[in-house]
Amino acid sequence: MKKSQIIVLAIGVVSIAVLFSLPTAVVDNDEGDTQIRSEASTDEETPRNLHEAEISQDVRERIASLAIKLEGIEDKEEISSLADLLAEEYTQAGKFDSAAYYLEQAAIKIDDVKHWEKAGSAYYEAYTFALNEQKIALLADKTRSYLNKVLDKDPSRLDLKTKVAMTYVSSNNPMQGITMLREILEEDPTNEDGLFNMGVLSMQSGQYKRAAERFEELVRYHPDNIQGQFYLGVSYFESKQTNKAKKQFQEVKNMTQDQMVLASVESYLERL
């Protein structure tokens, strides 16, 4: 599950903008059919050229200086440090694809598990914000290429397997992704990412009773998961379980001070 994203809902809007590790997706009848999209871009061109017009002058100058240094060094520690700095600059600018590009350069030059994971996770971050179908496919492929290398070394990394699974869900072979998510839950029935993602997929396909079951499991094992608590309320609301929805939304109000979440909760309570 991504570390910093929260639920965003416009007041009075029932449809949900899922900003949580989920790209375009098509799934089977158990979890339904759904499409989830967000925004970013990627390219094989140098990111400095790709995003130059979208980044402030001072940031461009810092990036140019760091990139030149990166191109001319061989020391692995320096390569890793400079790639991290470049990735941080691009991440702060909201250019996740470019952040991933430089972490990939470090992974290519250093070629170890640590840097494979950094590159793969960064490409997955960019992937979850991608809109263009071609870029979604490219970012998904990059994600898999690096994270699968880590999984080959350590198959127990279910957190990375979940990310790989979600890239398959949006591919031409969505059942491979669904199968992987089910395997994760078979191996670890309390897995937070697995339960969350299966619940959201059910929501997006309109299978709200099934979604409620997934989120009930999620919050039973992970009661501090505010996103899961909120989506459980929405699932109750959409499946006409009015009393449960009221109780659940009140529970969410007691769990967070986030004004966007609270406003969204109030918009649902007004409908009940």
Rank of each mutant, 00 (worst) to 15 (best):
G206P: 13
L85A: 14
E44M: 03
N148L: 12
V150A: 01
A10Q: 11
A107F: 02
V265G: 01
E71G: 14
Q241A: 12
S4F: 06
V18N: 09
P155E: 06
D75G: 08
V14T: 12
E251P: 00
D111Y: 06
Q229Y: 05
I7S: 07
K240H: 15
M255F: 03
L160I: 06
F129S: 10
Q57I: 08
S171Q: 07
R157K: 14
G12Q: 08
G32Q: 09
T128F: 05
G12A: 08
S202L: 13
E266C: 09
S171L: 09
S56D: 15
A100P: 02
L262K: 09
D152N: 07
Y101P: 00
M180Q: 09
R220I: 06
Q257M: 02
F20P: 02
D154T: 13
E186L: 04
K253Q: 14
A263V: 01
T162P: 01
E71N: 14
N132R: 12
I68D: 12
R157W: 09
A93W: 07
Y221N: 13
V261W: 03
S205Q: 08
I7H: 04
M175P: 00
I178L: 14
S145W: 01
N148G: 00
L269R: 13
L160S: 04
L232H: 10
E187R: 08
W116H: 06
Q5L: 10
S15A: 11
I6G: 00
M260Y: 07
R144T: 08
F237R: 00
A87K: 11
V13L: 11
K135E: 13
S202I: 04
E54D: 15
I226F: 02
A137D: 11
V13I: 12
K3E: 02
D75S: 10
T42W: 14
D84G: 05
D224R: 12
L9G: 06
F129H: 15
H51Q: 03
S267G: 13
Y236T: 01
M180E: 08
K244F: 11
I6R: 02
D33M: 12
G177T: 04
Q35S: 12
L85K: 15
E45A: 09
Y123T: 00
A107C: 05
Y236Q: 08
L139F: 06
A106D: 11
E213A: 15
V252P: 03
E251A: 08
G233C: 04
A67F: 12
S4T: 05
R220Q: 14
G233V: 02
M260V: 12
Q134V: 14
L22D: 07
S65H: 15
Y236N: 08
T91R: 05
S38V: 12
S4N: 06
I16C: 04
Y90M: 09
V27M: 10
E270A: 15
E54V: 11
A83D: 01
D188Q: 04
L131V: 10
E187F: 01
R182K: 14
Q229R: 13
Q57P: 01
D75W: 06
Q176W: 02
